[in-house]
Write a protein that binds this DNA or RNA. Sequence first.
DNA 1: TGATGCATGTAATCCGTTACATGATTCA
DNA 2: TGAATCATGTAACGGATTACATGCATCA
Lengths: 180, 180
Amino acid sequence: MSMNVRTLCLGVLTAGEASGYEIKKDIEEGMFSHFIDASFGSIYPALTQLAGEGLLTVRAEEQTGKPDKKVYAITAKGRAALAASIAVLPARDKYKSEFLFQMLLQEYLTPQMMLAAVDKQLNDLNGDLARIAGCICSEQPHKGARFVADYGEAVLTAAVNVLNEKKAELLRLTTAQAAE
Amino acid sequence: MSMNVRTLCLGVLTAGEASGYEIKKDIEEGMFSHFIDASFGSIYPALTQLAGEGLLTVRAEEQTGKPDKKVYAITAKGRAALAASIAVLPARDKYKSEFLFQMLLQEYLTPQMMLAAVDKQLNDLNGDLARIAGCICSEQPHKGARFVADYGEAVLTAAVNVLNEKKAELLRLTTAQAAE
DNA sequence: TGATGCATGTAATCCGTTACATGATTCA
DNA sequence: TGAATCATGTAACGGATTACATGCATCA
């Protein structure tokens, strides 16, 4: 499966028609957010392309007080293409973490910087958790939303728990060091 | 912090001198493996560049029965550059998962494909866990190895647990459906 | 004899991000 | 008045992957 922006757009549009702008918001705030990224620079060209291939339909919607928008909807052909795209064993998850890189090389970091990094990570994780909780409350058109939410919640919660332990340990060490 | 291949190479080399080939192996099999990726096509040019800037030293090592190798070691200047690189709040973790994408869109997947995907994921996760366990047993030059290993283990274990639950649920449903 | 591991490197290509361009409306 | 939200799009640029090129040793 080539999980590129094309496939992503098709996937988002299975939940209902949307404009490029709304798709971006969906990716940032919705269920997709914690395992995918995409910018306008890739979404808009992808939509134009998909519509040209008949996988999407376009409709211009005039709005008062706001710019017009192009509302895209997935076609039968588009659904078929999506199904074909995901009918393959998924590629291995890709996880990139500057945070863990820093933690591994903590001898090159001051205790303050390390603490700041841990706090930031904790903040990010809690933000993700809140987002998932929010998604699951709102109407979810996807059958798999429960699956993804449970998976995400479990993983993020585990991360928060270890981090809190590590942070406490760190604080004990640094205060002990400061008392010397 | 720009966690590019340059910084990554510097980081790996703090554990001791190594050739490009060995760095790649380290990234694949060592502590770095579960939160970073890099290919030869990016490692070799990066090493040449870093050596040119005086952040690394090179030494050609002749080997019998094997091709010669270029052994790189980090310099004081290199350590300083590394420290400078990581002396910034880390960027948000990036996580891409075709697996979760498929699970979210499970209505476009057959139960068999879904089960296959779950099994593959479970396999990948268990592989990662085994790798972490292996790393921690072998001599670890990094202070932060414990931190990273604990974090990784917690997260991966949580993922395995949810997945096993989900899989059991899935099997119940599919066998019930088959019995109809 | 054919795959796999060791070992290095380059060029083509891809896929995406960032920055730029444009413009109205609303809220502080 | 300045920032933020809504809205679409393009062009430049970057960073890495993939594929290719080379070659010897070992193991099945």
